[in-house]
């Protein structure tokens, strides 16, 4: 997984080791620290998080390198997240 930010003429690439993040431990950490902070996810359980992460890894096997999110602001700043 890779995050690419283009802002003010600068390019930043942030590689993320997918399988180190999207695993049981990652699900536990997300459940403990991320879920309570996000209103729309407040009812998500550990089992749901884990299933979602498994789905993410499965999707990555088939669609590796696909842009997952592509945001381009009116002033030209760009953020892309690649699977």
């Amino acid at each position: 997984m890779q995050i690419h930010v283009n802002a003010n003429g600068r390019n930043i690439y942030i590689p993320i080791p997918t399988h180190l993040v999207f695993n049981s431990l990652g699900a536990l950490l997300v459940q403990k620290f991320v879920v309570p902070q996000v209103d729309s996810l407040s009812e998500m359980t550990y089992a749901q998080t884990r299933t979602l992460m498994r789905g993410f890894c499965r999707a990555r096997r088939h669609l590796k390198g696909q842009p997952l999110v592509d945001v381009e602001s009116a002033n030209g700043e760009k953020v892309q997240i690649f699977l």
């Binding site: 299933t51 789905g55 499965r58 999707a59 088939h62 997952l68 999110v69 592509d70 381009e72 009116a74």
Partner: peptide, 14 residues
């Protein structure tokens, strides 16, 4: 502003 979210269908189904 332009936002493109490309979700793998398998992830949406999950």
């Amino acid at each position: 502003d332009k936002v493109r979210v490309n979700l793998p269908l398998v992830l949406v189904k999950t």
